[in-house]
Amino acid sequence: MAAAGKNLSKRQSGEVANKRAELAAARKDAPNPVWFKPVMFGFMLLGLLWIVLYYVTSTTLQLPVPAFGNSNILVGFALVIIGFLMTPWWK
């Protein structure tokens, strides 16, 4: 009796593994959500604008965040990098 139950659970776990593999394949082929591309390019452009705004105003106002000082450049590059890290998942 115990052996039959054991085989049944193995069969069920195999079926579950197959279903998971099918779902993973379907997700892999699925297109990106509508918001993905605008967010990706938005991060890239926001980072670029952040850096340009800092360079243009660095002698007077030091915008976008005066308290950051030269770290504004790092914030801008971080935003750009986030956008570029999203590109491998763009379909």
Rank of each mutant, 00 (worst) to 15 (best):
G69I: 12
Y55P: 05
V52R: 08
F41P: 01
T57P: 00
L46A: 15
V56K: 07
E15P: 10
Y55N: 15
S58D: 14
F77L: 15
L48W: 03
F84N: 13
G47D: 06
L61E: 01
V34Y: 09
A2G: 02
A2V: 08
S71Q: 09
T60A: 11
P66M: 09
T87P: 01
I73H: 06
F77M: 15
A26L: 00
P31I: 06
K91N: 09
L74H: 06
S71E: 13
N32H: 05
A25L: 14
Q62R: 14
Q62K: 06
K10T: 04
I81N: 01
L63G: 13
A25E: 13
A26T: 00
T60Q: 06
G14K: 08
P38E: 04
V56L: 07
L23D: 02
W50P: 08
R11E: 12
L23V: 13
F36M: 05
N18M: 09
F41Q: 01
L61K: 01
A4D: 10
P38S: 13
I73N: 02
G14D: 15
R11L: 04
Q12I: 11
T57H: 08
L63M: 14
K6G: 11
T60P: 07
P88F: 04
Y55W: 06
I82Y: 11
L79V: 04
N32E: 15
F77G: 00
T59Y: 02
A26N: 03
Q12P: 00
G47L: 12
R27I: 01
G83E: 01
L45Q: 10
K6S: 15
G14W: 05
I82H: 01
F84E: 02
M1S: 15
D29N: 12
S58K: 07
M86C: 10
A30K: 11
K10A: 12
M44F: 03
L49I: 14
T57R: 05
L63I: 14
F41M: 02
A25K: 12
K19C: 00
L46I: 08
V39D: 10
R11A: 15
G47T: 04
N70V: 07
G76L: 03
L63D: 10
A24G: 09
L23W: 03
G47R: 08
A3C: 04
V56H: 00
L45K: 12
L85G: 10
A24Y: 03
K37V: 10
A21C: 09
L85Q: 14
L45Y: 12
Y55E: 15
I51P: 06
W89P: 03
K37D: 07
Q62G: 04
L8F: 08
W35I: 09
G47S: 14
M86I: 02
V34T: 06
R27K: 15
